Amino acid sequence: MTQEQLRAALAAAQKAYTEMMLGQMGVSFSYAQGDGTRSVTYKATSLENLNQFIRDIQIRLGIYCGPRSRYQRFRY
């Protein structure tokens, strides 16, 4: 993926994460058409999977600041 595609995917993933945290993302929808009732169901993702996806994109873009792998010791 190009840098622009990664940035667009990051923005979409962060928006989806925010909507899920606020309870605004729907999973199942139904509506009536002239010939009957239709139903659409989307697969819900977990917040942890979405958070990992966001971290992966940030790492590829070079903007992830994760925890350090080693403890730092201070000497006085």
Rank of each mutant, 00 (worst) to 15 (best):
A9D: 00
S69K: 13
F29A: 09
N51W: 00
Q24G: 00
R75H: 12
G23I: 03
I57V: 15
Y42T: 03
R68I: 00
G62Y: 09
A8W: 09
F53M: 10
A9Y: 01
F53W: 04
S30D: 13
L10H: 02
A12L: 00
R38E: 14
A8L: 04
F29V: 12
V40A: 15
I57K: 00
Q58A: 09
K43Q: 15
A12T: 06
D35M: 00
Q58M: 13
A8P: 00
L61T: 05
S39P: 01
C65V: 12
K15F: 01
N49D: 14
M20Y: 01
M1L: 12
Y31G: 08
G34V: 03
S46G: 11
R38K: 15
E48S: 02
S39K: 11
G23A: 09
Y64R: 14
A32Y: 10
D56G: 10
L50P: 09
T37V: 14
R60N: 10
R60L: 06
A32W: 09
Q52R: 13
T41Y: 04
Q33I: 11
P67W: 00
V40S: 10
R7T: 08
A8I: 03
R55H: 06
S46F: 07
L22T: 08
Y64K: 04
N49M: 07
D56A: 14
M25W: 04
S30K: 07
Y64D: 06
I57G: 00
R68Y: 02
R38W: 14
D35R: 05
T2S: 15
L50I: 10
Q5P: 02
Q72K: 11
Y71I: 15
E48M: 05
Y76R: 12
Y31L: 07
R75Y: 13
Q14G: 03
Y64L: 04
G36F: 10
Q52P: 02
N51D: 06
A44W: 06
G26K: 04
Y31W: 11
Q5T: 08
S69M: 10
N51I: 03
Y64C: 01
F53R: 02
T18P: 09
C65A: 14
A32F: 08
T18K: 11
F74Y: 14
T45N: 08
L22A: 13
A44E: 13
Q72P: 02
Q24W: 00
G34R: 01
L61D: 05
T18N: 14
K15G: 00
L22H: 07
L61H: 03
S46D: 04
M1Q: 06
N49Q: 15
T45D: 13
T41G: 01
A44G: 07
R70M: 01
P67V: 05
S28T: 15
Q72W: 07
V27I: 02
K43E: 15
G23W: 02
R38M: 12
R38Y: 13
T37I: 12
S69V: 06
L61V: 09
F53D: 07
D35E: 11
F53E: 09
L61Y: 06
P67C: 04
I63P: 01
I63N: 07
T2G: 15
Q3D: 13
F29K: 13
L47G: 03
G66M: 09
Q72H: 08
N49P: 01
R75Q: 11
I63F: 02
R70A: 03
F53C: 06
D35W: 08
A9N: 01
P67D: 12
Y76N: 12
Y71K: 14
G62K: 11
R60C: 07
A32L: 08
